[in-house]
Computed example of a mutant assay.
Amino acid sequence: MAKRRMKKLSPLHLRIVDALRKHPKGLHIGDIRRLAVKRGDRQQHLDKRVRELSPYFVIDRPVRGRYTIYKYIRRRKPGEWNAEGVSNKLRSHVIHMAHGKCQMCGRTVAEDGIRLHVDHRIPQRWGGTSDVENLWAICSSCNEGKKDYFSSLPDNMMVRLASTASVHQRLAKLLNLKAGKWVSSDFLRSIANLTETQDDWQRRLREIRPFVRRLEKLKVHEEKRVTTHYRFPKRIRLPKNLAELVKRREKRRRMKAE
């Protein structure tokens, strides 16, 4: 594989990085505009300029009240750089493989009149690549909803989860990072589906139960629906080979059933 090189960043990009480094507690977009944009230089899409730093820098985005706060975490190593876009050929291939169906909600172009967009399953700022394995075709509603939802998640945590290949390990790691706090089924489903579509993500959650001390469950009434929340009461030491342990247990269970 050819070695990737960092694209030359503009003076504005470099001023944004400098401002973020000097303010470790983070800056909201108004602060960045005041500190990094020169007088008379209009930047209507300054948040986009910040996102363009993601292939080369880890920048966290916690939400405080009604503001998104941008926090500089670290510079990515050269092997982590990903400035590749999606070529027209690759975009056409991904759309073709979707067979006219949104790979997130299941609605179709023919029956529902949706428009498909090629999207990164794992966002580039979390280490996602533009390889075909990390691309899928989703409708406009799912695309916007996913962006809004993911923008509220802390980047440093999501980078750790996105780099975990096993769905079992990923779910357990999330619950461990959030130990003592209730985690919604919506969040867990998103994490389960980060790298591949999970038709029955709840089953993956049940399969880790024998290998954790306790997994608590809570029903929560939210407007017109009831959602399930889960948590580990306290942080535990997870087995590194959790996926293999689950696989062995399921194999023994099937053998007994036969």
Rank of each mutant, 00 (worst) to 15 (best):
K3R: 08
R4Y: 09
R4W: 04
R5T: 10
R5W: 12
M6D: 13
K7T: 09
K8C: 13
K8S: 12
L9C: 03
S10A: 04
S10R: 09
L12Y: 06
L12C: 04
H13N: 14
R15Q: 07
V17R: 00
R21T: 10
R21G: 07
K22P: 04
K22L: 05
H23N: 15
H28T: 06
I32Y: 05
R33W: 14
L35D: 14
A36K: 03
K38T: 05
G40P: 07
R42W: 08
Q43G: 09
Q44M: 02
H45V: 06
H45K: 11
L46M: 11
L46Q: 15
R51N: 12
E52T: 02
F57N: 07
V58P: 05
V58I: 10
I59V: 14
V63A: 08
R64W: 02
Y67N: 12
K71Y: 00
R75N: 03
K77Y: 13
W81S: 01
N82L: 03
E84P: 01
S87N: 04
L90D: 00
L90A: 00
H93M: 02
V94L: 03
M97V: 04
M97N: 07
H99D: 14
G100V: 02
C102L: 00
R107D: 14
R107Y: 14
V109D: 08
P123T: 09
T129H: 02
S130E: 04
S130K: 02
E133I: 01
E133D: 08
N134C: 00
C139A: 07
S141V: 13
S141I: 12
C142K: 08
N143Q: 04
E144L: 11
G145V: 02
G145W: 06
D148M: 02
Y149W: 15
Y149V: 01
F150P: 02
S151R: 13
S152R: 15
L153F: 10
D155C: 14
M157T: 14
M158H: 12
R160K: 13
A162V: 01
S166A: 10
Q169F: 10
R170F: 00
A172F: 08
L174Y: 09
L174P: 08
L174M: 12
K178P: 03
A179W: 00
G180K: 08
F187Y: 10
L188A: 08
L188Y: 13
R189H: 11
R189Y: 11
L194E: 12
T195G: 15
D199S: 03
W201Q: 06
W201F: 08
Q202W: 10
R206F: 11
I208Y: 10
I208G: 11
E216Y: 04
K217I: 03
V220Q: 06
E222T: 09
K224F: 09
R225S: 05
T227Y: 13
T228I: 11
H229M: 01
P233M: 02
P233N: 07
R235Q: 13
R235F: 06
L238H: 15
P239W: 09
P239S: 12
N241F: 03
N241G: 02
A243Y: 13
E250K: 01
K256L: 04
